[in-house]
Write a protein that binds this DNA or RNA. Structure first.
Lengths: 190, 190
DNA sequence: TCGTGATTTCAGTAATTACTGAAATCACTG
DNA sequence: CAGTGATTTCAGTAATTACTGAAATCACGA
């Protein structure tokens, strides 16, 4: 691996984290490399920078494309493919969220729906369905929220984030005011 | 594997998804089993239900404990350990978020900080640092927001979620109004 | 059409990760 | 402090996943 020290640290870290993030080492390293590169790189440059095989680069780029995490760019008078990451980190975040949802949440949601359609054949199944229904409800609530906020433009999303805490405090204040005029309180949950 | 059909579907699905979630098949299956079980299970019961080795169960339960996803329970006059998942799905969500952050985000944040402390030795490193700084800023903003909302009690968190969209619309409306009277600047931070 | 260079595919191999069974350890009882 | 049952450890093996090199395919210009 032949890279400036700071870049190398970053690339190696992404490689190590790769497995925790559900991608592999090479994919992580390539992404990191492209992310900090001042201009698009072709496959051969990646081979040289990371010291891995050409075919590995090809497969890993393909995976990054499946994740929509890299863009393919063509330079004039050059037949080779050049790759880059989107500049906007917020856009990257959106893509990441969308793809992870697609891979990690949606399948479960659909399995839960399917199971909940069935008639329970025993008390054990009835109880299991009740639990799955709780899980299903939670996931639905989360995805509804997500579908909503993902539409936001970048600056508005940023505002919402920095506001997050303040909205909370507003809710708390409202709550206190409301509770003053209340005679009874219902707090128990099952 | 000897389970009611609906439970089995759920358990098998969690097993398959396990790898996408950064845990392995067995861990996923055990978690699913405990989640839908009406009462705590001991290791031997898990062995029977899933048809896997006793030692595998032991190691997988240990991992689930490292994730804080299962609770150990002792029954009177019984030396065996019984395991269960927390009832409250919101609490489970919190735990999951916390643990994933710890494993998947925090290490990167600290590596980024470390690299950003260094003096760039070339134009390439300077550019790389600028990119890393963007990433660092985004992650900080996200984690700040997260630290804030994770404190919320369950019902308040739920409110915030269902409100999510409305807060957005409110911001949009405010934005329009502000832009109408743009000659003077009305900032309402704080 | 052929030739050239870029890219992809894929079978084989390496590396990693998951799982098992046997042995060790632990926690409690008599 | 021996005996019993529960649990954990760990070395070996199985299963899975990652990577490579060689061959095939592709895209384009002459």
């Amino acid at each position: 691996m032949n890279l400036p020290p700071l870049v190398q640290s970053f690339v190696l870290h992404f490689g190590e984290m790769g497995s925790r993030w559900g991608i592999n080492r090479t994919v992580g390293q390539i992404y990191a490399l492209l992310y900090v590169s001042p201009e698009p790189l072709n496959a051969e440059q990646i081979v040289e920078a990371l010291g891995i095989s050409r075919s590995n680069v090809s497969m890993s780029l393909r995976e990054l494309q499946a994740w929509n995490l890299v863009l393919l760019k063509h330079l004039p008078d050059d037949r080779r493919d050049f790759f880059m990451t989107p500049d906007d980190v917020w856009q990257i975040l959106r893509t990441l969220a969308e793809e992870r949802k697609k891979r990690e949440v949606d399948p479960t949601l659909s399995v839960l729906r399917e199971i909940l359609m069935q008639q329970p054949a025993s008390e054990a199944e009835r109880h299991a369905q009740a639990r799955m229904s709780e899980m299903h409800g939670l996931i639905e609530q989360l995805t509804t929220w997500y579908e909503d906020v993902k539409q936001l433009e970048t600056d508005r999303l940023a505002t919402l984030l920095t506001l997050g805490a303040k909205v909370t405090r507003l809710l708390e204040a409202k709550d206190k005011i409301v509770s003053l005029g209340r005679s009874k309180r219902t707090t128990e949950k099952g």
